[in-house]
């Protein structure tokens, strides 16, 4: 099939085939259009070269009908491309509900990745075939971009913000991981490998090796060590609200307004507690900026995700 052609990168994810199909469609349009134009240029150039005796009778300087044709036709053709492209875009931007989550921190010039069971990797990521994988990514310094050509996916990794990327690998193998956003001297060295394995193989790999605490456990430790627990204790007797089941809940804010407690909100609550204050509480929580790094933050958030049932909070 196509994938044997050296003109395409390996096709190893569910979206790769979709992107390639659109690519081929565009190539077909381009070929038709450019051959049409080149053909007309050549034919006219030969037939109406100055010495030629071909009749010039009926030469015209304009035609409303032609103008309409070549305005509307490119418009219609390009709208088909737009719709198709937008469709794929929605697909690659909307992760399914049930994903395997991985934390990614970009830093000049390396990728630090951590699985939820605590296994860490640097510049290499193991994933199983056939499972939707979602990366939650942030950067410690400048903008990077996580790019896996074989999966046809890419997303910028920004400082001070979480972005996500998801894919589902379809065939085992080793594929390039590139940093696609220029990030300084060793931008071209910020590369690595994605290792796609069969599920059993992957489970074995995941269980082996040196393993740190899982992010959630590490986050729990931080929660105690940083003293969060003094204000946020589960019995809800501290100065702060109980954080049981906070993740995903809807928060009522002081001064009206509501917020959904997603990753970005929790991150902000820890770094800029005053930015959005929970209704009914005083803005007494100090900022933890500088006391906890990007990885620590991700771990605390993982921990917060694990505690308590998802519940409506007020």
């Amino acid at each position: 099939m196509w994938s044997d052609l050296p003109l395409f990168p390996a096709r190893a994810s569910t979206s790769a085939g979709q992107v390639d199909a659109l690519y081929l469609y565009l190539i077909a349009i381009s070929a038709v259009m450019s051959l049409l134009i080149a053909g007309l240029l050549v034919v006219f150039a030969v037939r109406y070269r100055r010495e030629s005796k071909a009749s010039r009778l009926g030469a015209s300087n304009g035609s409303m009908r032609l103008e309409l044709i070549w305005t509307i036709l490119p418009f219609v053709v390009s709208m088909t491309v737009f719709v198709w492209g937008a469709n794929i875009f929605f697909h690659v931007n909307r992760p399914p509900d049930d994903t395997m989550n991985i934390l990614v921190v970009g830093k000049r010039w390396m990728w630090k990745l951590q699985h939820l069971n605590g296994r860490r990797e640097i510049n290499e990521l193991h994933v199983p075939v056939g499972r939707a994988v979602k990366l939650t990514m942030t950067s410690e310094d400048v903008i990077h971009s996580f790019f896996v050509p074989a999966f046809r996916v890419k997303a910028d990794v920004l400082p001070g913000r979480y972005t996500t990327l998801w894919f589902q690998a379809t065939r085992p193998g080793r594929y390039h991981l590139f940093c696609a956003e220029y990030c300084g001297t060793k931008h071209s060295g910020m590369i690595g490998w994605i290792v796609v394995q069969q599920p059993e193989e992957f489970e074995a790999w995941l269980g082996g090796g040196v393993r740190d605490l899982s992010p959630a456990r590490a986050g729990e430790r931080l929660f105690t060590n940083l003293g969060c627990i003094t204000c946020h204790n589960p019995e809800s007797k501290g100065r702060g609200p109980s954080l049981q089941g906070v993740f995903g809940s809807t928060i009522r804010l002081k001064g009206g307004g509501i917020a959904t407690a997603n990753e970005a909100y929790l991150r902000e609550s820890i770094l800029d507690p005053q930015a959005r204050v929970v209704d009914g509480y005083d803005p007494v929580m100090p900022t933890f900026r500088g006391l906890v790094g990007e990885e620590g933050l991700m771990q605390i958030i993982e921990y917060l995700k694990t505690i308590g049932p998802k519940a409506e909070k007020s």
Binding site: Q18, V19, I37, L41, G85, I88, F89, K154, Y182
Partner: peptide, 30 residues
């Protein structure tokens, strides 16, 4: 001018590849 028309057409048409959302995700910054 002949050179221009041909090459601009190719350049412009590949602009459409880049304007197509799902495809640009792959080829952006390449």
């Amino acid at each position: 001018v002949f050179g221009f028309i041909g090459l601009f057409t190719i350049g412009g048409l590949t602009g459409l590849f880049l304007a197509a959302l799902g495809l640009d995700v792959h080829v952006h910054d390449t």
